[in-house]
Write a protein that binds this DNA or RNA. Structure first.
Lengths: 203, 203
DNA sequence: TTGAATAGTTAGGAATCCTAACTATATTTG
DNA sequence: CAAATATAGTTAGGATTCCTAACTATTCAA
Protein backbone atom coordinates (compact mmCIF):
# COMPACT_ATOMS: atom_id res chain seq x y z
CA UNK A 1 0.00 0.00 0.00
CA UNK A 2 2.77 2.38 0.94
CA UNK A 3 5.02 3.58 -1.80
CA UNK A 4 8.55 2.29 -1.94
CA UNK A 5 11.13 4.96 -1.20
CA UNK A 6 12.49 4.53 -4.70
CA UNK A 7 9.18 4.95 -6.38
CA UNK A 8 8.89 8.65 -7.06
CA UNK A 9 5.60 10.27 -6.33
CA UNK A 10 3.99 11.74 -9.40
CA UNK A 11 4.36 15.25 -8.07
CA UNK A 12 8.10 14.75 -7.92
CA UNK A 13 8.59 13.50 -11.41
CA UNK A 14 9.42 16.71 -13.18
CA UNK A 15 10.52 20.23 -12.54
CA UNK A 16 7.32 21.76 -13.86
CA UNK A 17 5.19 19.99 -11.29
CA UNK A 18 7.57 20.98 -8.57
CA UNK A 19 7.37 24.62 -9.57
CA UNK A 20 3.61 24.48 -9.46
CA UNK A 21 3.70 22.81 -6.06
CA UNK A 22 5.99 25.59 -4.86
CA UNK A 23 3.66 28.28 -6.18
CA UNK A 24 0.75 26.58 -4.48
CA UNK A 25 2.63 26.53 -1.19
CA UNK A 26 3.42 30.21 -1.50
CA UNK A 27 -0.18 30.97 -2.32
CA UNK A 28 -1.16 29.25 0.85
CA UNK A 29 1.36 31.33 2.76
CA UNK A 30 -0.26 34.51 1.47
CA UNK A 31 -3.61 33.22 2.64
CA UNK A 32 -2.23 32.42 6.07
CA UNK A 33 -0.45 35.75 6.45
CA UNK A 34 -3.55 37.62 5.41
CA UNK A 35 -5.71 35.61 7.77
CA UNK A 36 -3.35 36.21 10.70
CA UNK A 37 -3.29 39.90 9.95
CA UNK A 38 -7.05 40.03 9.78
CA UNK A 39 -7.50 38.36 13.15
CA UNK A 40 -5.14 40.86 14.75
CA UNK A 41 -7.01 43.82 13.37
CA UNK A 42 -10.53 42.40 13.59
CA UNK A 43 -10.96 42.96 9.90
CA UNK A 44 -11.84 40.39 7.28
CA UNK A 45 -9.22 39.38 4.71
CA UNK A 46 -11.04 41.16 1.94
CA UNK A 47 -11.38 44.30 4.05
CA UNK A 48 -7.63 44.40 4.51
CA UNK A 49 -6.99 43.78 0.85
CA UNK A 50 -9.29 46.64 -0.06
CA UNK A 51 -7.60 49.02 2.36
CA UNK A 52 -4.17 48.21 0.96
CA UNK A 53 -5.43 48.55 -2.58
CA UNK A 54 -6.90 51.98 -1.85
CA UNK A 55 -3.55 53.14 -0.53
CA UNK A 56 -1.90 52.68 -3.90
CA UNK A 57 -4.46 53.34 -6.60
CA UNK A 58 -6.01 56.33 -8.28
CA UNK A 59 -9.57 57.63 -8.28
CA UNK A 60 -11.00 55.76 -11.23
CA UNK A 61 -10.01 52.48 -9.56
CA UNK A 62 -11.44 53.33 -6.15
CA UNK A 63 -14.98 52.21 -6.97
CA UNK A 64 -17.19 49.29 -6.10
CA UNK A 65 -17.31 47.83 -9.59
CA UNK A 66 -13.58 48.09 -10.15
CA UNK A 67 -12.81 46.49 -6.81
CA UNK A 68 -15.22 43.66 -7.56
CA UNK A 69 -13.34 42.92 -10.78
CA UNK A 70 -9.96 43.36 -9.15
CA UNK A 71 -10.68 40.79 -6.46
CA UNK A 72 -12.87 38.52 -8.55
CA UNK A 73 -15.89 39.01 -6.35
CA UNK A 74 -19.41 40.19 -6.92
CA UNK A 75 -20.54 43.75 -6.41
CA UNK A 76 -22.72 42.88 -3.42
CA UNK A 77 -19.74 41.35 -1.66
CA UNK A 78 -17.68 44.50 -2.16
CA UNK A 79 -20.65 46.68 -1.31
CA UNK A 80 -20.94 44.89 2.05
CA UNK A 81 -17.23 45.23 2.62
CA UNK A 82 -17.34 48.97 1.97
CA UNK A 83 -20.31 49.41 4.23
CA UNK A 84 -18.49 47.64 6.99
CA UNK A 85 -15.32 49.68 6.48
CA UNK A 86 -17.38 52.86 6.53
CA UNK A 87 -19.01 51.90 9.81
CA UNK A 88 -15.56 51.30 11.25
CA UNK A 89 -14.55 54.78 10.13
CA UNK A 90 -11.76 53.58 7.84
CA UNK A 91 -13.12 54.89 4.55
CA UNK A 92 -15.50 57.59 3.33
CA UNK A 93 -17.62 57.88 0.22
CA UNK A 94 -17.26 60.90 -2.08
CA UNK A 95 -20.17 61.05 -4.49
CA UNK A 96 -19.34 62.42 -7.88
CA UNK A 97 -21.01 65.47 -9.39
CA UNK A 98 -21.32 64.21 -12.93
CA UNK A 99 -22.64 60.77 -11.94
CA UNK A 100 -24.48 60.60 -8.68
CA UNK A 101 -24.92 56.84 -8.84
CA UNK A 102 -21.26 56.34 -8.23
CA UNK A 103 -18.74 57.41 -5.61
CA UNK A 104 -15.03 57.35 -5.00
CA UNK A 105 -13.83 55.55 -1.91
CA UNK A 106 -11.35 57.47 0.21
CA UNK A 107 -9.32 56.23 3.13
CA UNK A 108 -9.76 58.20 6.34
CA UNK A 109 -6.62 58.99 8.30
CA UNK A 110 -7.25 55.97 10.47
CA UNK A 111 -7.79 53.86 7.37
CA UNK A 112 -4.51 55.04 5.93
CA UNK A 113 -2.72 54.26 9.16
CA UNK A 114 -4.05 50.72 9.26
CA UNK A 115 -3.42 50.09 5.57
CA UNK A 116 0.12 51.36 5.90
CA UNK A 117 0.88 49.21 8.90
CA UNK A 118 -0.73 46.25 7.23
CA UNK A 119 0.95 46.56 3.87
CA UNK A 120 3.98 45.20 5.69
CA UNK A 121 2.26 41.84 5.97
CA UNK A 122 4.14 40.65 2.94
CA UNK A 123 7.48 41.56 4.50
CA UNK A 124 8.02 37.97 5.45
CA UNK A 125 8.01 37.13 1.78
CA UNK A 126 10.31 40.04 1.03
CA UNK A 127 13.21 38.82 3.16
CA UNK A 128 14.16 35.76 1.09
CA UNK A 129 13.59 37.59 -2.17
CA UNK A 130 15.87 40.37 -1.08
CA UNK A 131 18.67 37.87 -0.66
CA UNK A 132 18.59 36.77 -4.30
CA UNK A 133 21.20 38.00 -6.75
CA UNK A 134 20.13 40.68 -9.20
CA UNK A 135 20.21 38.23 -12.12
CA UNK A 136 18.05 35.74 -10.28
CA UNK A 137 15.58 38.45 -9.37
CA UNK A 138 15.30 39.45 -13.00
CA UNK A 139 14.77 35.86 -14.07
CA UNK A 140 12.26 35.25 -11.36
CA UNK A 141 10.29 38.34 -12.24
CA UNK A 142 10.32 37.50 -15.95
CA UNK A 143 9.13 33.95 -15.30
CA UNK A 144 6.32 35.13 -13.07
CA UNK A 145 5.31 37.79 -15.58
CA UNK A 146 5.10 35.05 -18.19
CA UNK A 147 2.78 33.07 -15.97
CA UNK A 148 0.56 36.06 -15.26
CA UNK A 149 0.47 37.06 -18.89
CA UNK A 150 -0.81 33.62 -19.77
CA UNK A 151 -3.38 33.74 -16.99
CA UNK A 152 -4.53 37.08 -18.35
CA UNK A 153 -4.85 35.74 -21.85
CA UNK A 154 -6.86 32.74 -20.75
CA UNK A 155 -9.16 34.89 -18.65
CA UNK A 156 -8.32 33.52 -15.22
CA UNK A 157 -7.23 36.98 -14.12
CA UNK A 158 -9.34 39.68 -15.71
CA UNK A 159 -7.77 42.90 -14.53
CA UNK A 160 -4.53 43.78 -16.24
CA UNK A 161 -2.02 46.45 -15.38
CA UNK A 162 1.18 44.88 -16.68
CA UNK A 163 3.49 46.44 -19.25
CA UNK A 164 2.98 43.46 -21.56
CA UNK A 165 -0.66 44.34 -22.20
CA UNK A 166 -0.28 48.12 -22.29
CA UNK A 167 -0.69 50.43 -25.30
CA UNK A 168 2.34 52.45 -24.19
CA UNK A 169 4.64 49.46 -24.20
CA UNK A 170 7.04 48.58 -27.01
CA UNK A 171 8.72 45.24 -26.31
CA UNK A 172 12.48 45.01 -26.78
CA UNK A 173 14.02 42.77 -29.40
CA UNK A 174 17.38 41.08 -29.12
CA UNK A 175 19.70 43.40 -27.25
CA UNK A 176 17.40 46.36 -27.61
CA UNK A 177 15.61 47.12 -24.33
CA UNK A 178 11.86 47.56 -23.90
CA UNK A 179 10.47 51.05 -24.21
CA UNK A 180 7.58 52.87 -22.54
CA UNK A 181 6.08 55.48 -24.84
CA UNK A 182 4.40 57.28 -21.97
CA UNK A 183 7.40 57.57 -19.67
CA UNK A 184 9.50 58.00 -22.80
CA UNK A 185 12.26 55.82 -21.43
CA UNK A 186 13.84 52.42 -21.83
CA UNK A 187 12.82 49.65 -19.46
CA UNK A 188 15.10 46.87 -18.30
CA UNK A 189 13.56 43.44 -17.70
CA UNK A 190 13.73 44.08 -13.98
CA UNK A 191 11.76 47.29 -14.44
CA UNK A 192 8.75 45.69 -16.09
CA UNK A 193 5.67 46.55 -14.06
CA UNK A 194 3.02 44.29 -12.65
CA UNK A 195 0.70 47.03 -11.49
CA UNK A 196 1.35 50.24 -13.35
CA UNK A 197 -0.81 53.25 -12.43
CA UNK A 198 -0.70 54.43 -16.04
CA UNK A 199 -1.63 51.13 -17.64
CA UNK A 200 -3.91 51.31 -20.63
CA UNK A 201 -5.13 48.05 -22.09
CA UNK A 202 -4.16 47.40 -25.68
CA UNK A 203 -6.62 45.45 -27.78
CA UNK B 1 -4.85 64.40 -6.43
CA UNK B 2 -3.93 62.12 -9.32
CA UNK B 3 -0.35 61.05 -9.62
CA UNK B 4 1.72 62.48 -12.43
CA UNK B 5 2.60 59.87 -15.03
CA UNK B 6 6.24 60.35 -14.15
CA UNK B 7 5.84 59.86 -10.47
CA UNK B 8 6.33 56.15 -9.93
CA UNK B 9 3.94 54.42 -7.63
CA UNK B 10 5.63 52.94 -4.57
CA UNK B 11 4.86 49.43 -5.74
CA UNK B 12 6.84 50.05 -8.88
CA UNK B 13 9.96 51.39 -7.25
CA UNK B 14 12.01 48.21 -7.01
CA UNK B 15 12.22 44.73 -8.35
CA UNK B 16 11.56 43.08 -4.99
CA UNK B 17 8.19 44.73 -4.65
CA UNK B 18 7.30 43.80 -8.18
CA UNK B 19 8.13 40.17 -7.52
CA UNK B 20 5.90 40.18 -4.48
CA UNK B 21 3.12 41.79 -6.45
CA UNK B 22 3.50 39.07 -9.06
CA UNK B 23 3.35 36.32 -6.46
CA UNK B 24 0.25 37.90 -4.99
CA UNK B 25 -1.38 37.95 -8.40
CA UNK B 26 -0.58 34.30 -8.95
CA UNK B 27 -1.91 33.43 -5.51
CA UNK B 28 -5.12 35.08 -6.48
CA UNK B 29 -5.21 33.05 -9.66
CA UNK B 30 -4.96 29.84 -7.68
CA UNK B 31 -7.87 31.00 -5.54
CA UNK B 32 -9.93 31.79 -8.60
CA UNK B 33 -9.12 28.51 -10.34
CA UNK B 34 -9.97 26.56 -7.22
CA UNK B 35 -13.19 28.46 -6.76
CA UNK B 36 -14.26 27.88 -10.37
CA UNK B 37 -13.48 24.21 -10.05
CA UNK B 38 -15.48 23.96 -6.85
CA UNK B 39 -18.55 25.55 -8.37
CA UNK B 40 -18.44 23.10 -11.25
CA UNK B 41 -18.27 20.10 -8.97
CA UNK B 42 -20.52 21.41 -6.17
CA UNK B 43 -17.69 20.91 -3.73
CA UNK B 44 -16.12 23.50 -1.49
CA UNK B 45 -12.55 24.62 -2.20
CA UNK B 46 -11.23 22.85 0.87
CA UNK B 47 -13.06 19.67 -0.09
CA UNK B 48 -11.32 19.66 -3.44
CA UNK B 49 -7.95 20.36 -1.88
CA UNK B 50 -8.41 17.45 0.50
CA UNK B 51 -9.37 15.09 -2.32
CA UNK B 52 -6.30 16.03 -4.33
CA UNK B 53 -4.08 15.72 -1.30
CA UNK B 54 -5.40 12.22 -0.56
CA UNK B 55 -4.57 11.16 -4.09
CA UNK B 56 -0.86 11.72 -3.53
CA UNK B 57 -0.06 11.04 0.10
CA UNK B 58 0.54 8.04 2.26
CA UNK B 59 -1.41 6.62 5.18
CA UNK B 60 0.15 8.50 8.06
CA UNK B 61 -0.77 11.78 6.36
CA UNK B 62 -4.36 10.80 5.60
CA UNK B 63 -5.75 11.84 8.99
CA UNK B 64 -7.80 14.68 10.36
CA UNK B 65 -5.04 16.18 12.45
CA UNK B 66 -2.45 16.05 9.70
CA UNK B 67 -4.83 17.61 7.19
CA UNK B 68 -5.68 20.38 9.64
CA UNK B 69 -1.98 21.24 9.94
CA UNK B 70 -1.42 20.88 6.22
CA UNK B 71 -4.12 23.38 5.33
CA UNK B 72 -3.73 25.62 8.37
CA UNK B 73 -7.22 24.98 9.58
CA UNK B 74 -8.71 23.71 12.79
CA UNK B 75 -9.64 20.10 13.37
CA UNK B 76 -13.37 20.83 13.49
CA UNK B 77 -13.18 22.44 10.07
CA UNK B 78 -11.50 19.37 8.61
CA UNK B 79 -13.80 17.09 10.52
CA UNK B 80 -16.78 18.79 8.90
CA UNK B 81 -15.14 18.57 5.52
CA UNK B 82 -14.54 14.84 5.91
CA UNK B 83 -18.09 14.26 7.08
CA UNK B 84 -19.38 16.05 4.05
CA UNK B 85 -17.09 14.10 1.70
CA UNK B 86 -18.21 10.88 3.31
CA UNK B 87 -21.87 11.72 2.81
CA UNK B 88 -21.11 12.40 -0.83
CA UNK B 89 -19.49 8.98 -1.07
CA UNK B 90 -16.10 10.29 -2.07
CA UNK B 91 -14.10 9.01 0.89
CA UNK B 92 -14.36 6.25 3.49
CA UNK B 93 -12.96 5.95 7.00
CA UNK B 94 -10.74 3.00 7.95
CA UNK B 95 -10.42 2.78 11.70
CA UNK B 96 -7.10 1.52 12.93
CA UNK B 97 -6.72 -1.55 15.11
CA UNK B 98 -4.01 -0.22 17.39
CA UNK B 99 -5.69 3.14 17.98
CA UNK B 100 -9.44 3.17 17.62
CA UNK B 101 -9.67 6.91 18.14
CA UNK B 102 -8.11 7.53 14.80
CA UNK B 103 -8.81 6.50 11.23
CA UNK B 104 -7.22 6.68 7.83
CA UNK B 105 -9.13 8.45 5.12
CA UNK B 106 -9.42 6.57 1.85
CA UNK B 107 -10.72 7.80 -1.46
CA UNK B 108 -13.55 5.78 -2.94
CA UNK B 109 -13.38 5.06 -6.65
CA UNK B 110 -15.64 7.99 -7.29
CA UNK B 111 -13.44 10.14 -5.07
CA UNK B 112 -10.37 9.11 -6.99
CA UNK B 113 -12.06 9.88 -10.27
CA UNK B 114 -13.02 13.37 -9.17
CA UNK B 115 -9.65 14.08 -7.59
CA UNK B 116 -7.87 12.94 -10.71
CA UNK B 117 -10.00 15.02 -13.01
CA UNK B 118 -9.65 17.98 -10.71
CA UNK B 119 -5.91 17.82 -10.17
CA UNK B 120 -5.75 19.26 -13.65
CA UNK B 121 -7.06 22.54 -12.33
CA UNK B 122 -3.53 23.86 -12.18
CA UNK B 123 -2.90 22.99 -15.82
CA UNK B 124 -3.48 26.56 -16.78
CA UNK B 125 -0.48 27.48 -14.70
CA UNK B 126 1.52 24.67 -16.22
CA UNK B 127 1.38 25.95 -19.78
CA UNK B 128 3.51 29.07 -19.34
CA UNK B 129 5.95 27.28 -17.06
CA UNK B 130 6.42 24.56 -19.61
CA UNK B 131 7.56 27.17 -22.10
CA UNK B 132 10.48 28.32 -19.97
CA UNK B 133 14.02 27.24 -20.76
CA UNK B 134 15.55 24.57 -18.53
CA UNK B 135 17.90 27.09 -16.91
CA UNK B 136 15.07 29.44 -16.13
CA UNK B 137 13.04 26.63 -14.65
CA UNK B 138 15.89 25.70 -12.38
CA UNK B 139 16.33 29.30 -11.29
CA UNK B 140 12.65 29.75 -10.72
CA UNK B 141 12.42 26.60 -8.65
CA UNK B 142 15.45 27.52 -6.56
CA UNK B 143 14.13 31.01 -5.89
CA UNK B 144 10.74 29.70 -4.85
CA UNK B 145 12.32 27.07 -2.65
CA UNK B 146 14.28 29.83 -0.95
CA UNK B 147 11.06 31.70 -0.26
CA UNK B 148 9.32 28.63 1.11
CA UNK B 149 12.30 27.69 3.24
CA UNK B 150 12.18 31.11 4.84
CA UNK B 151 8.44 30.85 5.39
CA UNK B 152 9.04 27.50 7.04
CA UNK B 153 11.69 28.90 9.34
CA UNK B 154 9.55 31.82 10.40
CA UNK B 155 6.59 29.56 11.09
CA UNK B 156 4.20 30.89 8.45
CA UNK B 157 4.03 27.45 6.88
CA UNK B 158 4.24 24.71 9.47
CA UNK B 159 4.25 21.52 7.45
CA UNK B 160 7.51 20.78 5.72
CA UNK B 161 8.32 18.17 3.12
CA UNK B 162 11.13 19.86 1.24
CA UNK B 163 14.62 18.43 0.78
CA UNK B 164 16.14 21.44 2.55
CA UNK B 165 14.64 20.44 5.90
CA UNK B 166 15.07 16.67 5.58
CA UNK B 167 17.41 14.40 7.56
CA UNK B 168 18.25 12.48 4.41
CA UNK B 169 19.47 15.55 2.57
CA UNK B 170 23.10 16.55 2.20
CA UNK B 171 23.35 19.94 0.45
CA UNK B 172 25.87 20.30 -2.36
CA UNK B 173 28.82 22.64 -2.13
CA UNK B 174 30.43 24.45 -5.02
CA UNK B 175 30.28 22.17 -8.04
CA UNK B 176 29.39 19.12 -6.01
CA UNK B 177 25.70 18.26 -6.36
CA UNK B 178 23.24 17.68 -3.55
CA UNK B 179 22.81 14.16 -2.27
CA UNK B 180 19.87 12.21 -0.86
CA UNK B 181 21.01 9.56 1.62
CA UNK B 182 17.75 7.68 1.37
CA UNK B 183 17.55 7.44 -2.40
CA UNK B 184 21.35 7.15 -2.39
CA UNK B 185 21.68 9.38 -5.40
CA UNK B 186 22.80 12.84 -6.41
CA UNK B 187 20.18 15.53 -6.87
CA UNK B 188 20.41 18.38 -9.35
CA UNK B 189 18.94 21.73 -8.37
CA UNK B 190 16.01 21.02 -10.62
CA UNK B 191 15.37 17.75 -8.79
CA UNK B 192 14.97 19.30 -5.34
CA UNK B 193 11.58 18.30 -3.99
CA UNK B 194 8.85 20.43 -2.55
CA UNK B 195 6.66 17.61 -1.33
CA UNK B 196 8.68 14.44 -0.86
CA UNK B 197 6.81 11.34 0.35
CA UNK B 198 9.89 10.24 2.29
CA UNK B 199 10.57 13.53 4.00
CA UNK B 200 11.74 13.34 7.59
CA UNK B 201 12.14 16.58 9.46
CA UNK B 202 15.65 17.35 10.69
CA UNK B 203 15.87 19.20 13.97
C1' DT C 1 -4.70 3.32 38.23
C1' DT C 2 -4.99 7.91 38.00
C1' DG C 3 -3.77 12.00 35.38
C1' DA C 4 -2.42 13.99 31.28
C1' DA C 5 -2.20 13.94 26.41
C1' DT C 6 -4.21 12.96 21.98
C1' DA C 7 -7.85 11.98 18.09
C1' DG C 8 -11.77 13.39 16.64
C1' DT C 9 -16.75 15.34 17.17
C1' DT C 10 -20.58 18.39 18.42
C1' DA C 11 -22.76 22.80 19.07
C1' DG C 12 -23.24 27.34 18.10
C1' DG C 13 -22.10 31.49 15.95
C1' DA C 14 -19.65 35.21 13.21
C1' DA C 15 -18.28 36.13 8.73
C1' DT C 16 -17.84 35.20 3.68
C1' DC C 17 -19.66 35.50 -0.53
C1' DC C 18 -23.11 34.12 -3.50
C1' DT C 19 -27.83 34.86 -6.54
C1' DA C 20 -31.91 37.32 -7.46
C1' DA C 21 -34.35 41.24 -7.33
C1' DC C 22 -34.33 46.00 -6.64
C1' DT C 23 -33.58 51.55 -6.90
C1' DA C 24 -31.81 55.24 -9.15
C1' DT C 25 -29.29 57.48 -12.56
C1' DA C 26 -27.22 57.79 -17.23
C1' DT C 27 -27.11 56.81 -22.07
C1' DT C 28 -28.82 55.51 -26.44
C1' DT C 29 -32.02 55.64 -30.14
C1' DG C 30 -36.12 55.83 -32.90
C1' DC D 1 -37.74 64.07 -26.42
C1' DA D 2 -39.65 59.83 -24.61
C1' DA D 3 -38.86 55.02 -24.22
C1' DA D 4 -35.72 51.38 -23.91
C1' DT D 5 -31.54 49.87 -22.34
C1' DA D 6 -27.38 49.94 -19.72
C1' DT D 7 -24.86 50.90 -15.59
C1' DA D 8 -23.71 51.83 -10.37
C1' DG D 9 -24.64 50.28 -6.35
C1' DT D 10 -27.83 48.18 -2.60
C1' DT D 11 -30.92 44.98 -0.22
C1' DA D 12 -32.55 40.49 1.09
C1' DG D 13 -31.84 35.96 1.96
C1' DG D 14 -29.28 31.89 2.16
C1' DA D 15 -25.51 28.32 1.67
C1' DT D 16 -20.99 27.69 3.17
C1' DT D 17 -16.71 28.49 5.67
C1' DC D 18 -14.29 28.31 9.55
C1' DC D 19 -13.84 29.56 14.09
C1' DT D 20 -13.99 28.73 19.64
C1' DA D 21 -15.44 26.14 23.47
C1' DA D 22 -16.78 22.16 25.32
C1' DC D 23 -17.18 17.40 24.84
C1' DT D 24 -16.28 11.86 24.31
C1' DA D 25 -13.29 8.24 23.91
C1' DT D 26 -8.93 6.28 23.85
C1' DT D 27 -4.01 5.92 24.79
C1' DC D 28 0.12 6.80 27.24
C1' DA D 29 2.94 7.95 31.34
C1' DA D 30 3.92 8.12 36.26
Amino acid sequence: MNKSPFNLDQQNENTDSRIIAALERISQAFRVLLWNESKELSLSPIQIQVLIFLLHHSDEKRKVTYLADEFNMTKPTISDTIKSLEQKGLISKAYELHDTRSYIIHLTNEGKAIAGRTAAFSNQIQVPINKLKADDKENLLLSLIGVIDHLNKTGVITIQRMCLSCVHFKPGEGKQPHFCKLLNKNLENSELRIDCPEHQLSN
